[in-house]
Amino acid sequence: MSELNELYQQMILDHNRRPRNFRAIEAPSRVQEGYNPLCGDRLTLYVTLDGDIVADVAFQGSGCAISKASASLMTEALKGKRVDEARALFDRFHRMITTPPDQPVEDLGKLSVLAGVREFPTRVKCASLAWHTMKTAVADETAGPVTTE
């Protein structure tokens, strides 16, 4: 039960119930689809860039609590960041959720609530979907839809 509580912390349940920046952006600089074929999670990420600053970022879609909360927390974390900082944060977040559970991880502030997925290998993709989608969205040339497969 404790690992479950670790996974489904209040903050995650709250962001699942009331996801932040859960909307479309009209005329965004970048739009990117993300899809997790394993569970059918789907999201559309909208990014407005002001120069190389993430001026606004929002998402829509359907997914499990982990993927929704992760997307919601990500949008909060990214606003106002430079694109290279966003990419660096992807790497740090990805490292955090893929480090074996018995090893220490970097403190990423609010994003650290997602470290609990390390105990649930099948759920790591849920937590990383939004982040993979973001990485592609802010890449120089966007390709087709992102999948976690």
Binding site: M1, E3, L4, L7, Y8, R17, L38, C39, G40, D41, S62, G63, C64, A65, I66, F120, T122, R123, C126
Partner: peptide, 30 residues
Amino acid sequence: DGIHPHDIGTIVDREGVAIRTGHHCAQPVM
């Protein structure tokens, strides 16, 4: 209502109950 099947699957698994969650290779049905 309000709870994604994937979350259901993870939680019941912790109680030793194995069920399938997903589209069951039948996306048109979903």
